[in-house]
Design a protein around this nucleic acid. Structure first.
Lengths: 227, 227
DNA sequence: AATATCATTAACTTTTTATTAATCTTTTTT
DNA sequence: AAAAAAGATTAATAAAAAGTTAATGATATT
């Protein structure tokens, strides 16, 4: 998914550099050069985050933030500015900024911080669910729940660990040694026997979809196949 | 509401200063001096955020973060460290940190940043004041009243807390640890026994509708099922 | 002070589950 | 092709976890 950003920056060269760099990093970005244009475009378009410069002629960044708040818009914004005094930082946050980033900042670090903030902000709204799909089955590793059409099995923790390991390496070989050391903690004769028992169980659970197979590669390990 | 923080900082004087200052600022704070103690206390108590130093003997902050992630815990953490190199910042975020704060930092700014992050992270825990519906039952969390057709039971506060917790996570696993740390405040042997007693009671209360089940997931927790 | 309420602790039973064992099948090596 | 090794399957076992009912002790109410 592509995040949509609004960059408000009066400085032409910095604005250009930043917007080009962020485009390169797969953000969708609109760059405007003053507060009024920002307010106008916020009326018309939806953004995930606004990046506000503080020092701008006419309407400065703090002022713009106040205007955004008054419009009762829920768009998150942050300040990206050379104004690095503590009093400015405090003012920025008190206006409801989600971050206050001091210039100059390494572009790579900026991208990481932006992605992090956007991730945090998104998580707040949608309770993320991690689901694996395998053939006609789905597996929910948080609830240990394996589903096939209307049926529903509650797996145990070991079953779950092994299934997740195989799913993560779908269509690739999982060596005995690697499975045993990561899940069982120890690669020995008895744990290997145990692994066999669990493989049998998973095969039984997955047998409703004949396109799914857990195959053994002699002396190497197992492979969960579903192409 | 008071936020609960876990501070992991090996430096005695800095740890003391920070924890005292944050207490003064109305945070509830637990300070531990190494990663192992942090992991131990995270098993038993619930926190809103962890503040991790990076440079610590034995287990460093990055290492600790990896351990937290492996425990599949959803506790947010940030790094507060003198390690200010870009590579460290990127590593910090890649481990899932919600922020990376460089020392030294003005305490006032730190508090503002903490409050901001906690605000962003706070799930809209819209404390439901309406009725919960579960199968043929309704539950009114304000006056602790559980209804089934004409019948009516008055729950106790613990019963209510547990039922509400399960209802909020209907059809999803509620881990022992999470139930105990949020409702009982501590995850230990005796409280776990207590939890069992209350689960039995709720099952008895809900038995009139056979489509409702509180199932145990061995070694994981409980799940209130009603699909 | 006596009573009532309720969470916790205790004592005991039942269930769950990873492992080990036993037995059979397949694959590889000689 | 026979022997050996590896894997598959089903069943048995033992330890840990969960369930249940009752007793206890703390707190609030009358």
């Amino acid at each position: 998914m592509e995040y949509k950003l609004l960059l408000v920056e009066d400085d032409a060269s910095l604005g250009y550099l930043l917007s080009e760099y962020l485009k390169m990093k797969k953000f969708s970005i609109v760059w405007v050069k003053n507060g009024n244009n920002a307010l106008k475009i916020l009326e018309e378009h939806q953004f995930d985050l606004c990046i506000l410069d503080v020092m701008m002629p006419d309407m400065d960044g703090f002022n713009l933030a106040e205007n955004i708040n008054q419009k009762n818009s829920s768009i998150p914004f942050l300040f990206l500015t050379a104004r690095s005094l503590k009093i400015d930082v405090l003012k920025g946050f008190s206006l409801g900024a989600v971050d206050y980033i001091r210039k100059p900042i390494d572009e790579e670090e900026l991208v990481v911080r932006l992605n992090n903030l956007l991730y945090i902000l998104a998580k707040k709204n949608t309770s993320q669910k991690e689901l694996y799909k395998i053939g006609l089955y789905t597996y929910n590793p948080l609830d240990f729940e394996l589903c096939f059409e209307n049926e529903n099995w509650q797996l145990t923790s070991r079953e779950s660990e092994l299934l997740v390991y195989l799913l993560k390496n779908k269509n690739h070989i999982c060596k005995h040694k690697d499975i045993l050391t990561t899940i069982w903690g120890k690669n020995d004769y008895f744990n290997r026997k145990s692994l066999n028992v669990f493989v049998t169980r998973l095969r039984k659970l997955l047998k409703n979809d004949p396109t799914i197979k857990i195959v053994n590669i002699h002396n190497q390990g197992f492979k969960l196949i579903n192409k």
